[in-house]
Amino acid sequence: MSPTKRIKVLIAKPGLDGHDRGAKVLARSLMEAGFDVIYTGIRQTPEKIVKTAIQEDVDVIGLSVLSGAHMYHFKEVMRLLKKYGIKDKLVIGGGIIPESDKKKLEKLGVAAVFGPGTDIKEIVDFIKNRVRAN
């Protein structure tokens, strides 16, 4: 992508949990870091998230789940992206996600999973490096 265009990020909360602290802090921090950010709010279905990502033509989809239901919802998002033939979006995740699940999610195509205690700078750098490289 051209170096002048701002990176566009969708921060989404699939599933039913209302733990939106991390999602909101990240959304705000990414705005501060110069990204265009859309935050979906809570209780989004994977279908709705993928549609929003396509409509808004975002570069990055950030998924946050803290209810333990991450495997189901992340898998659904990845399946739908594939179904719609979307390959150009960087998908990252966050939440209460055990190490063993992180590895499974990465195999499914999730670029990275950030757990509690992650420095926001790490996420910013990760997005910048990966999106610029595309």
Binding site: G15, L16, D17, S67, G68, A69, M71, Y72, H73, E76
Partner: peptide
């Protein structure tokens, strides 16, 4: 669990994965 917290029965599709 979350479906119960939101008054959703376990056999509702919205409860899947949760």
């Amino acid at each position: 669990d979350y479906p119960t917290l939101l008054g959703i029965d376990s056999d509702d599709p919205l409860a899947r994965g949760e």
